[in-house]
Amino acid sequence: MNYAARLYRQVHPGWVREGRITSQVFHPTPKDRGFLSVYDGDQITAAESWQHYTEVLGLMSAGVVAVTPAECSQHQIGVVPDPRDLFPEHTLLDFTGLTGNQVRRAARHLGRAANNRGWLFGPVNV
């Protein structure tokens, strides 16, 4: 894994305010079971990932932000390639080894990193 790679995370429109994303973008919900889906930026562009997410998967996204494997590893978040049929860029951020407080702290760090990096695609009006 390229530790400087961009891991693209789609942002739900409800989680953007004046161009700033909430830390919840990087906080798994109970449905996520400790994993968050991202796209491997070494295999796909941000624009292509948004197009795949919205047109192929049919989900809502206001745009694309990114963190790196280095930023994830600083908080003991695993980066796990999880290629699927017609979706080889799929990658998982693995929070399962973290306590609740560690997840909360990591989400804030990753949210800050993503906001500082800025939008890799979008935001678009949805």
Partner: peptide, 23 residues
């Protein structure tokens, strides 16, 4: 604050103040 909805039906207020992320 920046206000966002939460999956639990609440509201999360956030501030970025210097090196602090506040919610």
């Amino acid at each position: 604050p920046y206000l966002y909805p939460t999956p639990e039906g609440g509201v999360q207020a956030e501030w970025s103040l210097g090196s602090r992320e506040v919610s």
